[in-house]
Design a protein around this nucleic acid. Structure first.
Length: 431
DNA sequence: TCTGGGGTCCTAGGACCC
DNA sequence: TCTGGGGTCCTAGGACCC
């Protein structure tokens, strides 16, 4: 069996880099991107990381530092990031068709069958090409397993002299290999999160090399089979394949925190109707139908001084469906069952569960749905989706969504949708 | 006053069946 | 005195990822 060659391409500080592509003044300055509602830091430039602001930190706790250091903050602009991601992935696909888009800012490449004379040189070329074509800086890590490729991408960022590429295959000698592995903290290993890091540290497992050499029985016992796999991957045994054709999602969620507290059933109904319409759009986009909807509502868990209430309900649909009016009716019925008056709600959401391919829907023999009705529903949804796509996402909506959007999130630092809205395209000034 | 959103996988334990 | 045991399915919760 030939050894696999996996590369992980990882966009550096992705959302910040997207903002920088369209605003030259952000270069070399501390820049951060905030979550919805301008709540938490979800992307930080190196300058911001150096100031000590952690990932996920709430903005209000760091506001003084933000002001003092002149940190430039942006509200999240997901249409822009999604479009930039698409450009990066298209570029990667041209250089290695055998790829798995792993997240909005990462892709695994399987370079095994490309017969490269120098894998490391080719990865440098990939890095330069992506940066030239899209303006997004990336790091590339290479290894015989996906977990090692991930670890390598950490080293690519860490070891400055490597110019953004690190390849474990360049260090076949075990001693040298382990030396580099020791530079990766165990918490930075793919699959080891906060809880496991704490546990492992208690047993003096501090870095990736320690984990690789730990007692496999202990690891399996405490970290289950996923931990076992991680450990094997660290020692070069590939357990996790590159997944070229990701299967359709098994669940779809649309959830939001509110910009201001929502108190009445009417208010909550409007947001839930909106979430459910979005669910319908996503279902149709991947040609799935849902068997169940789950609706949940909750108060602000961070405010111990407020009366707390959270609840959720699962509604079985009369038939598997992607038809927005039916979905909305079901979700609102569910909401009615869990709503309690007298609370200030902070967040709500809708999930579509037990998804199935749309073309496999079994219609009832007892109450056959006429072909004409099925066609009419599909045609209506297709028309609505088409108009919303062309004219703007929310031109056509349902009456149940209301018109005020009183729950809408706060976004006071939003950049423009440079790449997806003609009206907001970047303008060049000729001088 | 102010704390994101969208996913996957695994396990333990209860319900149920024979 | 003295109450089985094994298999399967389902779900909630917990871990992880970005």
């Amino acid at each position: 069996m030939t050894k696999k060659i996996y590369a992980l391409v990882d966009c550096n500080n992705f959302y910040v880099s997207c903002e920088r592509v369209f605003n030259g003044n952000l270069e070399n300055k501390p820049v951060a991107v905030l979550s919805n509602n301008d709540g938490c830091f979800i992307a930080r430039s190196n300058e911001v990381k150096a100031l000590g602001i952690p990932m996920g930190a709430p903005l209000y706790q760091w506001q003084d530092l933000v002001d003092k250091e002149g940190i430039i903050v942006f509200s999240a602009n997901f249409p822009l990031y999604g479009d930039m991601s698409h450009r990066v992935m298209k570029t990667l696909e041209e250089m290695c068709p055998d790829l798995e888009i792993y997240s909005i800012d990462e892709a695994f490449l399987d370079l095994t069958n490309m017969h490269l004379s120098s894998v490391t040189d080719y990865c440098r070329l990939i890095k330069e090409t992506v940066e030239r074509w899209t303006g997004i800086p990336v790091s590339v890590g290479v290894g015989p397993t996906k977990t090692l490729a991930k670890a390598a991408s950490k080293l690519a960022k860490k070891i400055k002299s490597n110019n953004g590429v690190f390849n474990f295959l360049d260090y076949p000698d075990t001693k040298e290999n382990d030396e580099y592995l020791s530079k990766v903290e165990v918490g930075d290993v793919w699959g080891i999160g906060r809880k496991y890091t704490k546990l492992l540290n208690r047993y003096n497992i501090i870095n990736a090399c320690d984990l690789k050499n730990a007692d496999p029985v202990f690891i399996k016992q405490r970290l289950t089979v996923t931990g076992e796999r991680t450990q094997m991957e660290l020692s070069g045994i590939a357990c996790i394949p590159v997944n070229r054709n990701p299967h359709p999602k098994k669940a779809i969620a649309v959830t939001r925190s509110f910009g201001k507290y929502q108190k009445t059933l009417q208010e909550l109904s409007e947001s839930v109707a909106y979430f459910t319409r979005k669910i319908g759009e996503k279902l149709r986009a991947q040609e799935s139908a849902a068997n169940y909807l789950q609706v949940f509502i909750l108060t602000n868990l961070h405010r111990k001084d407020h009366p707390q209430y959270h609840n959720s309900v699962i509604v079985k649909l009369a038939k598997p469906s992607d038809y927005s009016p039916l979905l909305i009716a079901a979700a609102l019925q569910g909401l009615k069952n869990i709503f309690r008056t007298g609370f200030s709600y902070k967040k709500a959401g809708v999930l579509a569960l037990a998804l199935q391919p749309k073309d496999l829907i079994q219609y009832s023999f007892l109450e056959p749905t006429p072909e004409t009705q099925k066609n009419a529903e599909a045609k209506l949804m297709k028309t609505v989706d088409g108009i919303n796509r062309r004219v703007g996402a929310d031109v056509l909506k349902y009456a149940a969504e209301g018109v005020t959007r009183g729950w809408w999130m706060n976004q006071t630092h939003k950049s423009k949708r440079y790449t997806t809205k003609w009206a907001e395209i970047l303008q060049a000034k000729l001088t």
